[in-house]
Design a protein around this nucleic acid. Structure first.
Lengths: 247, 247, 247, 247
DNA sequence: GTGGTCTAGACCACA
DNA sequence: GTGGTCTAGACCACT
């Protein structure tokens, strides 16, 4: 990125093959919790249609994910592409995370910038519908947290996983309420990048998360730009601290 | 961006050919003023090395830029790839800008977020060397502005063009001082996107720009995170206002 | 051609790029009817082998032909390079022909010289096999003419197109029977040049053509040099008259 | 030229480098006698201008000709590119000719076709000026023949060489009088090809040549198409017979 | 098994 | 020592 005197900021390019793009989208969707362990992905035929590519290309991506044990391919009438439970232990994950520590913490600089800004803009530009959606997502997360606390181990990882899915939806809903496609796009990319080294890891729900989520939504409700931005910033800083503590 | 219920946020992919990536990098470098009208780009062989691609691939990109009259190709020992003067009149530019008005203003949401954050982080993380570089760039911009004011027409567009080149260096220097590669990358992308619909247009230097630049650097000098971020925000808002006024 | 005193007959040279040579051969083969509308050209790999050039070079020629809508490029296993129907109306063709009237009529001087000579030599040098081939081609042309007359519109342009293909084969078969490579080469070049301004135009079959074709073959059968040459001359003069009438 | 069933008449291409084209033009001009032994070629600078190429390219061609001892490069004020005497003995030439016997005789088929046709057309289309030029060339050839006969060896090869130069001019003058650029072009190419394997060989002047030349011009003068064509045909057949006798 | 793209290296024409 | 062109081989996306 540095514009060193001789290179004029021109840096090596690498063209991503179509199946790599498909792979990344599916992988990110799983990492963001849009597909939960046990869920079935759309059929290859549908995926090909969504991505506007041929089935061959989808199959190449699917083959990689199967090779990584991220999904399981079941044949026959009841078959399909099934998302598997994350197979690494938490210890193994932390191991992997440490290897991309700098990268991971760096991403928080970006998230802090764009998600705070998005929360601020959302406070100014949100519609009643946006607000209703945020409240609905808050309730859903609350329910998961409660049930998780009650049966400490019962749902275990699975409840974390569901939490992460809804958490992602929540952050993206704020990005949408900010009515700024570029900003939203950057947020998605940053979140995707954050989960990339992690995979669909089970994340301990940090205690403050739910409270801060609610506070952000209240600020957005009040159309208070600065408070919304500040609270979102605090939330992300708290997450950064939690992650940093693991490493 | 919207994760509509059925599509799970999966969107059509389009693999960018290597030569398209090369094209965009060269185009952006010109738009950011890293190459001025009359400048020679690196030779095709050097570009190929920088991008880590074959000369063939570079040539495909070069052919497009030549077709668009962005560069001129001269043969022989004294030849090379020469950046041409922007050929559109200001009126024609404004015309074109209007067609991408929404896109253009949307980019400012992103710039505001990431460049303010970068300025804030720069205040915390900058080295003495970063500071010296910023001061140097400020002086260079001051000199251009002074000479431009004195001889209203003399340097004309050319002085604007040089100004834009240094202005870009200034903003990127702040991004670097923030020590956050992801943030810097996003800033480069946002600035590149901003100039995309514009091309290497000559831009009226807004009066407040120089003062705000200096104020930002002073805040960075003082290691004052919030003031640096706020002033950078003000600068970008002022630029947005200027652009909006044209449209 | 004039050897003006000062220039010693030395004229500017222009090196034809390999892909231009490839282009002209393919274009000429289509114009001569060796490939009919709807036909598939050999694959790019096969063309490269035939021309003894790299696929890259073939592709440059293919790109031009696609740009001119002479061929259509279809991808995938069932794809290939498909010759398209000529898209101009007859009126448009005549328009274009008029612009190269002098060039076109001039070519007939050359055709008259070389094709008459070839017919004469063929009468002297032909083998039984040559003769059988000529008779076979005569029958094929007769069949097309008959069917075209019966169903005035049915086959329409398509029957003209097939006729032209076989007509070309007929004339080249005589050139081959003359056992003179230089002469044959010149005949091919002249016929190619003749069709160049025309493209794969549909040509009204002139009434006398078939009779004269038969008479020429009879003379060749009889080993009558002068009669063969004279009849071929008459045939070409008749064609010239037909073309001249359009202009 | 055979359109073998599988190859569709498509044959290997070979792109001629610019310096090869230059080389061939200079070589042919020498072979046709446009430049005589001892003559100076135009300067490299002038040749570059005539051919519309750079001096470098001319120099490459010149280097080859020098390497073949066809010309001699003299430096300094009195220098230039000097055409040398043919250095092979007649025996060596005949040796070389035999190797291209078939090629050589084949060329006569083409010459017979196009030069007879040109003579015929010249009879129809010649102007008074064309005629005067032909008569002038006849006289020049007559003068050389007379002087050559008188001093059998004196001028020796040199008088043959001059004869060949004027003979070429004569045949090309007829081609021009035929007012058919394509035909003229083919004649030049055929004559160039004929001399190619020979080089600037000294040719025994065949006895009948002068008489037939005169007879052809008389026929052209009388506007007698058929007689002109027939006599030119006879002349070329006689030349073919002479050449065949050597082989 | 087609066309679409890329690579690494080479030679040429030009100034 | 620049851009212009070609080669031989490879992998990819599509049908």
């Amino acid at each position: 990125m540095a514009a060193s005197k001789d290179s004029f900021g021109l840096i090596p390019v690498r063209s991503l093959a179509t199946h790599e793009l498909v792979l990344e989208q599916i992988r990110t969707a799983i990492n963001l919790g849009r597909f939960q362990p046990g869920d079935r992905l759309p059929t290859e035929r549908d995926l090909a249609e969504m991505f506007e590519v041929s089935r061959t290309t989808v199959r190449e991506a699917v083959a990689v994910l199967e090779g990584e044990s991220v999904i399981e391919v079941r044949r026959g009438r009841t078959g399909g592409l099934i998302v598997r439970e994350a197979s690494l232990t938490r210890k193994e994950y932390v191991q992997r995370l440490r290897q991309s520590r700098a990268e991971l913490l760096g991403i928080f600089d970006l998230r802090l910038a764009v998600e705070s800004a998005a929360a601020g803009l959302a406070a100014q530009r949100r519609t009643a519908k946006d607000l209703a959606r945020l409240r609905r997502l808050l309730r859903a997360m609350g329910a998961i947290e409660t049930s998780a606390r009650e049966s400490e181990e019962a749902g275990g990882p699975s409840s974390f996983s569901r939490f992460r899915g809804i958490d992602s939806q929540f952050h993206l809903a704020i990005a949408e309420a900010a009515r700024s496609p570029r900003l939203a796009e950057t947020i998605v990319a940053a979140r995707g990048a954050m989960f990339h080294p992690i995979g669909a890891v089970f994340v301990k729900i940090e205690p403050s998360a739910h409270e801060l989520h609610e506070a952000v939504v209240d600020a957005i409700d009040d159309r208070d730009h600065d408070r919304a931005a500040a609270l979102m910033g605090a939330h992300i800083e708290a997450t950064r601290a939690t992650v940093e503590a693991w490493l």
